[in-house]
Amino acid sequence: MLVPVIAAVDGSAESFAAAMGAPPTPLRQWGRAAREAARRNRPLKLLHAWSWHPRQDGEPATAAQRHLARRCLRQAEERVQRTCPGVRVEEEQVEGPATAALLRAADEADLLVLGSRGLSGFTGFVVGSVALGVVARAARPVVLVRAEETAPDEHVPAADGHDSTRTPYRDVVLALDLNDPCDEVIEFAFEAARLRHARLHAVHAWQQPSAIALGPGDIGLVQVPQRADEWLGFMTAVLQVWREKYPEIEVAETVTEGRAQSVLVRATSGASLLVVGRRFTDRPAGPRTGPVAHAAIHHVGCPVAVVPHA
């Protein structure tokens, strides 16, 4: 049995209002999940998690909630079937806290897709506590996508400037940490580019060490162009084995001096996907997304895939 792509169906008041016949909210993240399932030749599971709350008389209000959840799932399925009619769709309702339910589902998923509103027309996401909790703890890759995204957003514009799905895909951008390059993250990015027949753009941000941080035996303040060349040579060496494994993928390499947040915002302008890593941690403070993934989620405008690794 093929492991599915799982899309979380939002149980918010807005989604329930849409399910009950109110003007629908943008629900296109399900279209993105369906396209991912089609590209990966996998089924799509629509998952709705809900928690019941007892009424004042002590009786659980589960019947109404289950009914609303079913309608919400059916609405999502209808939209998916219009977007990608060849994708096999499954539905599931689970009871319990949404974060815990989605984490359990992610354990059995090829990929988990979560929708979020954009902060503006350009960059960043409005990410709720459920999405952040899932991203910080999930054992499988999680993709955050704008709820208002459409299929043409993944493609370069047509020659006349209009949106199109017949043009090539935009770049897949890999945020590559050359201080600790991780195979899982790199492979996910190359595979994402292969599935899209897109170019892979690997990006590393580095910062010049301050004089205070240098020890007595350290080489002093090496010229910036020399340090950039050293980083670029290292990136080429790290990616060489992946170029050989994916010879059909065009790869662009960029190393830039600056803060990762600013570098990634510039690099992902016009990209179809950003891939970042998140390290598993057993720190007492609990799971964290890490500074680069956190910056990407809150400041990058394209969909973000967060890939966990050891």
Rank of each mutant, 00 (worst) to 15 (best):
Leu2Ala: 12
Pro4Val: 02
Ile6Pro: 01
Ile6Val: 15
Ala8His: 15
Asp10Phe: 02
Asp10Asn: 08
Glu14Val: 02
Ser15Tyr: 06
Ser15Val: 07
Ala18Asn: 07
Gly21Trp: 04
Pro23Trp: 11
Pro23Gln: 10
Leu27Phe: 09
Trp30Arg: 01
Arg32Glu: 03
Ala34Glu: 00
Ala38Ser: 06
Ala38Arg: 06
Asn41Leu: 06
Arg42Pro: 04
Arg42Leu: 12
Lys45Thr: 05
Leu46Ala: 03
Leu47Phe: 12
Ala49Gln: 10
Trp50Tyr: 15
Trp50Pro: 04
Trp52Ile: 04
Asp57Thr: 08
Asp57Tyr: 02
Thr62Phe: 08
Ala64Phe: 13
Gln65Phe: 00
His67Leu: 13
Arg70Met: 14
Arg70Leu: 07
Cys72Ile: 02
Ala76Leu: 07
Cys84Arg: 02
Cys84Thr: 01
Pro85Cys: 06
Val89Pro: 03
Glu90Ser: 07
Glu92Asp: 06
Gln93His: 09
Val94Ile: 13
Val94Thr: 11
Glu95Ile: 14
Pro97Ser: 11
Ala98Phe: 01
Thr99Asp: 12
Ala101Gly: 15
Ala101Ser: 15
Arg104Pro: 04
Ala105Phe: 03
Leu112Thr: 04
Val113Cys: 07
Val113Thr: 05
Gly115Trp: 06
Leu119Ser: 08
Ser120Leu: 05
Gly121Ser: 12
Phe122Glu: 09
Phe125Glu: 05
Val130Pro: 01
Val135Tyr: 01
Ala136Glu: 05
Pro141Val: 03
Val142Cys: 10
Leu144Val: 02
Thr150Leu: 03
Ala151His: 00
Asp153Asn: 05
Asp153Trp: 11
Glu154Ile: 00
His155Asp: 01
His155Asn: 03
Asp160Val: 04
Asp163Met: 08
Ser164Val: 09
Thr167His: 13
Tyr169Asn: 01
Val173Arg: 05
Leu176Asn: 05
Asp180Gly: 09
Cys182Met: 11
Asp183Phe: 01
Asp183Ile: 05
Asp183Leu: 09
Val185Gln: 12
Val185Arg: 09
Val185Met: 06
Phe190Arg: 09
Ala192Lys: 06
Arg194Gln: 08
Ala198Ile: 05
Arg199Ile: 05
Leu200Cys: 10
Val203Trp: 06
Val203His: 06
Ala205Glu: 10
Gln208Gly: 00
Pro209Cys: 14
Pro209Phe: 07
Leu214Trp: 00
Gly217Tyr: 04
Leu221Trp: 15
Val224Ser: 05
Leu232Gly: 06
Gly233Glu: 00
Gly233Arg: 12
Phe234Trp: 10
Thr236Trp: 09
Ala237Trp: 15
Gln240Val: 06
Gln240Glu: 15
Arg243Ile: 11
Tyr246Phe: 15
Tyr246Thr: 00
Pro247Asp: 08
Glu248Asp: 14
Ile249Pro: 05
Ala252Cys: 01
Glu257Gly: 04
Ala260Asp: 08
Gln261Leu: 10
Ser262Asp: 06
Val263Lys: 02
Val265Phe: 00
Val265Ser: 07
Arg266Ser: 12
Arg266Tyr: 11
Ser269Cys: 13
Leu274Asn: 15
Phe280Pro: 04
Phe280Asp: 03
Thr281Met: 02
Pro284Ser: 11
Arg288Lys: 14
Arg288Thr: 14
Pro291Arg: 07
Pro291Leu: 07
Val292His: 00
Ala295Glu: 09
Ile297Val: 13
His298Phe: 10
His299Thr: 05
Val300Lys: 03
Gly301Pro: 03
Cys302Met: 12
Cys302Pro: 07
Val304Thr: 12
Val304Asp: 09
Val306His: 03
Pro308Asn: 12
Pro308Gly: 04
